[in-house]
């Protein structure tokens, strides 16, 4: 499947006319893109470090994870909106940039992983932790699985962020 046509369309769109014309505005949009990246990865980092028992051990993990959810969604919306704006100004350059595709693949994988694996595992770990021992504890999510999921989540999101920076270098 060749996605070149999307980039050619974006490159000649009205949005591209606009984003290519105002260098100052482009830099401000970049700033918001970075700031929302900080919000997204910061919130994920907080949750993952909590599940690794590194941070906020005295706060129930469910409380920490629930609080981060809203900010993760806000950050994702800002990231995508500012990202599309940025992409419109340099659409053809991005299409031929390896790290752009690494970042997009990482982002897609990160989202799927977060909502299909990470969050359900954390929720199950919290629920099973609340039950008093006995038969239910035997059914609990294994602690090493929770830690492995936290490490994988950190690896994915740091790689996505690093690939984003590396678009500019390659």
């Amino acid at each position: 499947m060749d996605l070149l046509f999307i980039f050619e369309w974006l490159d000649t769109s009205m949005l591209a006319d606009f984003s290519k014309s105002y260098a100052g505005l482009f830099a401000i949009v970049q700033t918001f893109h970075i700031a929302s990246m900080v919000m997204l990865v910061g919130m994920i980092l907080l949750g993952d470090l909590r599940m690794l028992n590194v941070l906020l051990r005295e706060v129930p993990s469910q409380k920490v994870i629930d609080n981060t959810g809203k900010w993760i969604k806000i950050a994702l919306v800002t990231i995508v909106l500012s990202g599309v704006y940025e992409a419109s100004a340099i659409a053809m350059k991005l299409y031929f940039n390896t790290f752009y595709w690494a970042k997009m693949a990482g982002l897609a994988m990160g989202l799927a992983y977060m909502y299909l694996i990470r969050n359900p595992i954390y929720r199950r770990a919290e629920l099973s932790g609340l039950e008093p021992g006995g038969a239910i504890a035997a059914e609990a999510v294994q602690p090493w699985v929770v830690k492995m999921v936290a490490v994988t989540s950190l690896v994915i999101w740091f790689t996505v962020s690093a690939s984003g920076r590396w678009i500019g270098f390659s």
Binding site: M109, Y113, I117, P120, I121, R124, S128, E139, A140, V141, Q142, W144, V145, M148, V149, V151, T152, V155, I156
Partner: peptide
């Protein structure tokens, strides 16, 4: 939980 944990661990291992 146990089965889902093993699925999660398998997918994580592939990604890592």
């Amino acid at each position: 939980n146990k089965t889902f944990g093993m699925v999660a661990a398998g997918i994580s291992a592939i990604i890592l």
